[in-house]
């Protein structure tokens, strides 16, 4: 028998993104690239964005790791295609809210498939897995703005 909390963690949608990750490819024309590595478990994500003005024109990633880290980054890139930098900021903070068990975040449809990850909030040691891609995104947004500011 599968535990109810375990069921909420391993939603079909998560396993589906794990097996068939979206946007997992090189993006040669990227404007920013960030590598995130979790030395504790060896999970790795290389996030590439093509930022055009204040929009993310394209987002792709290369990565390997557990179902949670890889599904989360796959779902995240789906939300990022064409999003403004401000929308990406909002996505990051709303996803962090979701990981902290915030109920409003769990009802927020703008999170899209990412809502399937709400069960992770019940497994504190796995939250860092789900956040790995978002850590990369935060860093990528920061670098993009620094570059834009320098130009």
């Amino acid at each position: 028998m599968i535990e109810p909390t375990l069921n909420s963690l391993y939603q079909q949608l998560i396993l589906e993104h794990y097996r068939k990750p979206r946007n997992r490819a090189e993006l040669p024309e990227h404007t920013v690239e960030v590598r995130m590595y979790n030395p504790v478990c060896g999970d790795e994500i290389r996030l590439q964005l093509r930022v055009d003005g204040d929009r993310i024109a394209e987002a792709k990633f290369i990565g390997q790791g557990c179902s949670i880290s890889q599904a989360a980054v796959s779902m995240m890139t789906v939300k990022l295609q064409g999003a403004t930098l401000a929308e990406a900021d909002a996505l990051v903070s709303q996803f962090i809210n979701l990981m902290h068990g915030d109920e409003a975040a769990a009802r927020d449809r703008t999170l899209g498939d990412l809502r399937a990850l709400q069960g992770v909030s019940k497994f504190p040691v796995r939250i860092k897995c789900a956040l790995l891609g978002f850590d990369a995104l935060q860093e990528a947004l920061k670098q993009s703005r620094l570059e834009a500011g320098a130009q």
């Binding site: 535990e3 963690l9 391993y10 478990c41 060896g42 790791g65 179902s67 796995r126």
Partner: peptide
């Protein structure tokens, strides 16, 4: 299979079985 060791460890833990996963 293709179950990542961290996922294996989380699932085993939910049944009270403590193993290590990683490098």
């Amino acid at each position: 299979g293709d179950a990542h060791p961290h996922d294996i460890s989380t699932i085993l833990d939910s049944e009270g079985v403590a193993v290590r996963a990683g490098h």
